[in-house]
């Protein structure tokens, strides 16, 4: 596998149900995401984009096909190894934030670092730095219930970055936000992209495309379109059904990747 490729799938398939009730949520998808790329995946509800994101992050196992995260093939990993990989290499941002209600903002951000075995002092320092970066240093000791939707999502983004992951996977990050909060989050994603963080965002929101290097449209579990956006150096050269490979990725890495 190419060294600068952060995510790679081949024939990735996820089915639900059986016989006449069989649904192919993700249908033989080939995808390459090079380091530093900001990829937006769009499509109508139920087209399989969230399932694809879950498969990429190891939250779900494919019915068929392979997934690599960096040099690790994750579809055959044990649950324990997957957990370790998630806390070390993947940051998740969810539509409904999924902050722990009983923990303050800074405690939510340091969650992954503590799970990864970092010392409490170091985890707290990093969490405070990230909260400062997302503009919420003054809200660090507030509970999620005391924060607005946009602020909660910024805390979730800070949490996703706390372990300096290889890739940030965001599932409808602006889906529950009003316009003002959406703008805040978009600005943050733009900063993350500019810093060279690999980013995969599943969204309905066309404005996300403004901060992406590449956009894939999905329909019925497969890729319908894969196009580079302004500033992006690589485009999908689909090969067969559901193809979204990034040819020449090694040469075309726009952002510096991890750190």
């Amino acid at each position: 596998m190419t060294g600068s490729m952060v995510l790679r799938t081949r024939g990735l398939t996820r089915q639900y149900g059986r016989d006449s009730g069989l649904v192919r949520a993700v249908d033989e998808i080939d995808l390459d995401v090079p380091a530093g790329q900001a990829l937006a995946i769009m499509g109508p509800s139920g087209c399989g984009k969230s399932t694809l994101l879950h498969l990429l992050g190891g939250l779900q196992r494919p019915t068929d096909g392979q997934v690599w995260l960096a040099d690790h093939r994750i579809d055959t990993m044990s649950e324990r190894a997957l957990a370790r990989l998630r806390r070390d290499s993947v940051g998740f941002v969810f539509q409904s934030f999924h902050l722990m209600d009983e923990l303050t903002a800074v405690e939510n951000v340091e969650l992954a670092a503590l799970l990864a075995g970092q010392s409490p002092r170091r985890a707290r320092k990093r969490a405070m730095y990230l909260l400062d970066r997302v503009g919420l240093a003054d809200r660090a000791r507030h509970l999620p219930a005391e924060l607005s939707g946009g602020q909660r999502q910024r805390v979730a983004i800070a949490r996703a970055l706390s372990n300096d992951p290889l890739v940030v996977l965001a599932d409808e990050p602006t889906g529950n936000l009003d316009s003002a909060a959406t703008v805040e989050v978009l600005r943050l994603f733009d900063e993350i992209r500019a810093a060279g963080q690999t980013l995969v965002v599943v969204t309905h929101d066309a404005r996300i495309a403004a901060v992406a290097d590449r956009m894939i449209s999905m329909r019925d579990g497969a890729f319908a379109d894969d196009s580079p956006l302004a500033g992006a150096g690589m485009a999908g050269t689909g090969s067969g059904r559901g193809s979204g490979t990034a040819a020449g990725a090694a040469a075309g890495t726009v952002y510096g990747g991890r750190r």
């Binding site: 939250l59 370790r84 998630r86 999924h98 722990m100 969650l111 799970l115 990864a116």
Partner: peptide, 11 residues
């Protein structure tokens, strides 16, 4: 959420 951010079954 705990699992998503990397807590294993034992944790």
């Amino acid at each position: 959420l705990l699992k998503a951010v990397g807590a294993g079954p034992a944790m």
